[in-house]
Design a protein around this nucleic acid. Sequence first.
DNA 1: ATCCTATATTAGGTTTGCCTAACTTTAGAG
DNA 2: CTCTAAAGTTAGGCAAACCTAATATAGGAT
Lengths: 130, 130
Amino acid sequence: MKTTKSIEDYLEAIYVLSLKNKPVRIKDIAKFLSVKLPSVTEAINRLVKDEYAVHTPYEDVILTKKGEYVGKNTWEKHQILFKFLKDILKVPQDKAFREACLVEHCISDETKDKLKKFMKSFQNNTERIR
Amino acid sequence: MKTTKSIEDYLEAIYVLSLKNKPVRIKDIAKFLSVKLPSVTEAINRLVKDEYAVHTPYEDVILTKKGEYVGKNTWEKHQILFKFLKDILKVPQDKAFREACLVEHCISDETKDKLKKFMKSFQNNTERIR
DNA sequence: ATCCTATATTAGGTTTGCCTAACTTTAGAG
DNA sequence: CTCTAAAGTTAGGCAAACCTAATATAGGAT
């Protein structure tokens, strides 16, 4: 099933927020993504329709297995890209973060895995050289 | 001036097509980007309005300096990303190409330059090792 | 128990960028 | 020179995803 950038952003936000072990509310998501409350309500309806999340009005938002998978995966892509940009290319931290937020929606799982492995071996090599 | 993904796609297409030293027509752009003719006409109007291109109805499309700069820059980002994905990460060629098409709109000039330098030094190093 | 405030939802509007269908222009074949 | 086919434009529509303004709900303070 294809996911849009927007859907991935919401799933990632909910996933990251849920790592804090506090119920995830609409307002938390709005704050996290810098969008207004009605945009979140609308987006959550889409997520529920496609079975990425469970939500009853005025209650917490909860990811399904499927939603959690996508949210976690997107967040992992973000983290790997951020590390690559910051630690290897030496892009300033804030710019690296912002670009990771965009690129995370563009790369496949295969590229994610290969980038991860590349960084591991690259860092091992530079350690050996030192 | 901020450019959207769509505008960058059109400028890049026109730039690449113009490298062939043949006048660039609406239909060429449509074919290149896999969109329909009216979408191109409409996009060109946007480009002309913002002075990225010059166009009189039923004639060739010509980039301004400003438009050429963006088109060329986007194409360079594409090529560097493609190379990185294909030659360093070993992502299959067609997948590497498709992802480069998406990521090219997400990275800054700084990241482009740093990725280029990184690849140069990386390839020098692996050559030395061999 | 009531009421107020923070949170959430609904309704309706905007922008971007694509589409199809219908119409116009241009250039080249005859 | 005409006329037709390819190329381009115009008109109108659609979907995604955001917004503001207005309305509804729920839970805590009194």
